[in-house]
């Protein structure tokens, strides 16, 4: 991904909207007994489009703001989301741009990973007892929601960041053979 100021602004706006929606909507609804955590899918999609550095950086920033907004221990979400962004980026760099269903599946898997990592980190900083471990079924459900959110999100970002994507950049030049061979 070629990060221009315009693309960076789009990314920032996207992250801001994602954080706002997470705080004011997805965290406050319950679907089958568990809330929806969209941030791992969001960061993973960044990684899947932009590579390791983009994914990791997005994970750090989004995690930091998320922790600050929720008054959670700073760095806990960052570490979990950085892992999701990094793995998404690594897949992008090794296997190329994935298809939408694959992106959804990866987002779901990263959501599960981020949920478990966050739990581990919070337990490590002594808040595990108060927070209690989320039930495994809830983690699996969140993973499922990650799949469902990851697919449209990936599709949206792919369109939004299309000018910056190296592989997806459409070639506007048509090569014609010169009569003179020049």
């Amino acid at each position: 991904m070629i990060v221009t100021p315009g693309i960076l602004a789009r990314m920032a706006i996207g992250a801001f909207l994602a954080l706002l929606l997470q705080a004011t909507f997805f965290s406050m609804i319950e679907v089958f007994g568990t809330s929806v955590w969209i941030l791992p899918a969001f960061v993973t999609c960044f990684g899947l489009l932009g590579g390791r550095i983009i994914g990791t950086s997005a994970g750090f920033v989004v995690g930091f703001v998320s922790d600050a907004m929720m008054d959670a221990p700073l760095g806990s979400s960052s570490l979990a989301l950085m892992a999701a962004g990094y793995i998404g980026g690594a897949i992008r760099e090794r296997a190329g741009l994935p298809t939408v269903p694959v992106a959804g599946a990866i987002s779901g898997a990263m959501t599960v990973l981020a949920s478990l990592l966050t739990g581990l980190i919070l337990a490590g900083v002594g808040q595990g007892a108060a927070l209690a471990w989320p039930a495994l079924s809830e983690v699996v459900l969140q993973g499922l929601y990650g799949v469902l959110i990851g697919m449209p999100l990936f599709l949206l970002f792919r369109r939004l960041f299309a000018p910056a994507l190296v592989a997806d950049r459409p070639s506007r030049k048509r090569h014609r053979d010169s009569v003179l061979g020049v």
Binding site: G63, A72, P73, G75, L79
Partner: peptide, 15 residues
Amino acid sequence: LAFVMLTVTFGSGSG
């Protein structure tokens, strides 16, 4: 940086 933040804000929310 994430680990530093975790360490600094240990036990005090987001510090």
